[in-house]
Amino acid sequence: MNRRQLIASVAAVTTISLAAPTWAQDEPLKVGFIYVGPVGDGGWTYQHDQGRLAVEEEFGDRVETTFIESVPEGADAERAITQLALAGNKLIFTTSFGFMDPTINVAAKFPDVKFEHATGYKRAENVATYDARFYEGRAVIGTIAGRMTKSNKIGYIGSFPIPEVIQGINSAFIHARKVNPDVEMRVVWAYSWFDPAKEADAAAALLAEGVDVIMQHTDSTAPLAKAQEAGAIGFGQASDMAAFAPTPRVSSIIDNWAPYYIKRVGQVLDGTWTSEATWAGIGDGEVVIGEITEAVPAEVKAEAEALRDRIGAGEYHPFTGPLNKADGSAWLADGQVAKDEELSGMNFYVEGITAEIPQ
């Protein structure tokens, strides 16, 4: 190494050290969380709060966590995030897609605070993003749904028509139809992440159309309660929702945020945190398929678990061609796998879904 290289290396190390100091051990790291729903929702927010509690258990008195729940997306979110920053939180997790712009806005005002935004795509020097490949789990439960429907009509309750949700609808349909070519997918939009009354109404509307399997990308247990009344089946969303097992909840997609939260808090503590984008799935342990109950035939359970394991091992991607778009145009050729960039902007249904995506 010549002198110029040595000087450059020392300068780089010095810059990194100044940018990311190890956290002072004589004071706890304050970590804040913003939730779109209540911690008792039994779904999305509940699972994020389980991750927060895991952070406390992992780091003990080295951290101090707090949260604000039931924060509407929009201006209220910006006020709540600002409140956490002003309270001395040096790492703030904002856990809903609609918190994206408020997070970016607040981060610009607090450059010494690190922010983590869930499911979004906008980053900054002090803003990282993290997401889960929920569509991998939808492939597994779509397989169960396709095998178990008797009416060949599967219902899906969407929250908002954003790529994350559209991915899930498409993945569930593709894999339901792989095992049952007669399957139809009916979609109803709740236009809310957490609203038990709207979710119950959406489930009732689907059941009235003859649906006997319900999936959801909303956060409450209301759709499972409606399925129970009608003798239909459903799946836990975001958390296990095991109180409804063995039926109508015959399995679940569980969002396991704890490892990510522990990792990122640890990086702030040891000075290695950087802004990055992560998108983890079954193979990373971030998307978990909950217990498949005895209400599911043994051969269907084995089929679903085999698919889960192939996805987790990287042997199979849920969006593998041949696949066309709903308008009949070609999308993926035989054996071709969708790129992450395509999935991140997904704004179309695959061939076979006749519903329209709201604009």
Rank of each mutant, 00 (worst) to 15 (best):
E286H: 15
E286I: 03
V287G: 04
V287C: 06
V288R: 11
V288K: 13
G290K: 01
G290A: 07
I292N: 04
T293W: 03
E294C: 12
A295Y: 15
A295W: 08
E299L: 01
E299I: 00
V300P: 14
V300K: 08
K301S: 14
K301I: 02
K301F: 09
K301M: 12
A302E: 09
A302G: 14
E303W: 04
A304F: 07
A304T: 09
E305D: 12
E305V: 12
A306G: 12
A306P: 09
A306D: 10
A306H: 09
R308D: 05
D309M: 05
R310H: 11
I311E: 01
I311T: 02
G312C: 03
A313Q: 05
G314Y: 05
G314C: 09
G314M: 04
E315Y: 00
E315M: 01
E315S: 07
H317M: 01
P318F: 10
F319W: 09
T320L: 10
T320F: 05
P322F: 10
L323C: 14
L323M: 06
L323I: 10
L323N: 11
L323A: 12
N324S: 13
N324T: 14
K325Q: 10
A326N: 10
A326V: 06
A326Y: 12
S329A: 11
S329T: 13
A330Q: 15
A330W: 04
A330T: 12
A330E: 15
W331K: 00
W331Y: 00
L332E: 10
L332K: 08
L332R: 09
A333M: 15
G335T: 02
G335Q: 02
Q336G: 14
Q336N: 15
Q336L: 09
V337D: 09
V337R: 04
V337T: 08
A338I: 00
A338R: 00
K339D: 10
K339L: 15
E341C: 06
E341F: 06
E341D: 15
S344M: 13
G345R: 02
N347H: 12
N347Y: 13
N347W: 04
N347E: 10
F348E: 13
F348Y: 08
V350Q: 07
V350G: 07
V350E: 06
G352H: 13
T354F: 07
T354A: 11
T354L: 06
A355F: 04
E356N: 02
I357F: 00
I357G: 06
P358Y: 08
P358M: 04
P358H: 09
Q359P: 03
